[in-house]
Design a binder for these strands. Structure first.
Lengths: 151, 151
DNA sequence: CGCCTCCTGACCAAAGAGGTCAGGAAAGTC
DNA sequence: GACTTTCCTGACCTCTTTGGTCAGGAGGCG
């Protein structure tokens, strides 16, 4: 139930790319801007490239840029590219698990967990993120004062 | 962003305890009912005991039971007891991370992620779970047809 | 040609996941 | 008091993941 460093780094780097608007940005510049270890970041960018989220060119004037408009890339896309499926239980998707006895309805709970994650992650695009204009459902969640307190 | 076997097992065992209603249940019976490796389960139950969720007695007629009424124990309580804090990013709570540059608003996204998880996990009690009567916000999420399809 | 930058695989240490094993300590029964 | 039952605890184990680093290769550009 946690967000890995890799996913956090990936989203941050993608946000920088979204702001650069189709201009190739060097890995080193991304690493500097977001304070990410360069070599680790390049592995992450490679995964994003294989997932079709990012494109790249080598050589002088090379770098990385988004494969699609920033409005069409969601946080969920990026998280899935580097962490795999969201909200799997014991490495299986919740809809494929059979629960017995008094735990029978636990499946619905994990399905609801996944659905609630999706309503956040699939609705925030990179364009929203860099503009600071999150969708209303999301900013409403973040606006609750006790969303900011630890438990 | 996944649910560990430990958390899944813990909730399932707790559901059995909730259904037994203050009668001590032996570890072996719980393990059988939910198909969980016994020795692993006893470690989990110990963690739940240390967290004050479960109580236990040894010897003949011993076993485990809930320390509080099933209406007062939420899935979030159990998940936190065995997995630690929900939705930490890089092992830190989202409210304590400082984001720079174009990722500045990412903090709000992770806060919203945590808030959305809480609206599910903190509102479903063990009593709801065994009765199959989930709170309306939660069953509404699970009722959407595309909540059941993988992506 | 030479430089720049991405690309890739190998490696590494520490931690976590998912268990198993062996023995000890309380609670009840005879 | 002995015996059985059941929880309690720590040690251990294998495999994978996490969060990286290192070394070298391959493609672009001037």
């Amino acid at each position: 139930m946690r967000v890995s460093a890799k996913a956090d780094y990936a989203v941050r780097a993608a946000a920088e790319l979204a702001a650069a608007d189709d201009d190739p940005v060097k890995g080193e510049k991304l690493a500097d801007a977001q304070d990410i270890p360069l070599q680790f970041l390049e592995h992450i960018l490679l995964e994003l490239k294989h997932a079709g989220i990012v494109r790249a060119r080598r050589g002088a004037k090379g770098g990385y840029w988004l494969a699609k408009p920033a409005e069409e890339v969601t946080i969920a896309d990026i998280v899935r590219a580097v962490e795999g499926p969201i909200a799997h239980v014991q490495s299986s998707p919740p809809e494929s698990i059979e629960y017995r006895g008094n735990a029978e309805h636990l499946q619905e709970v994990w399905i609801a967990v996944r659905a609630s994650l999706r309503t956040v992650l699939e609705h925030v695009t990179l364009a929203d993120l860099v503009a600071g204009q999150l969708p209303s459902e999301v900013s409403a969640l973040a606006a609750q004062p006790d969303a900011w307190v630890a438990r």
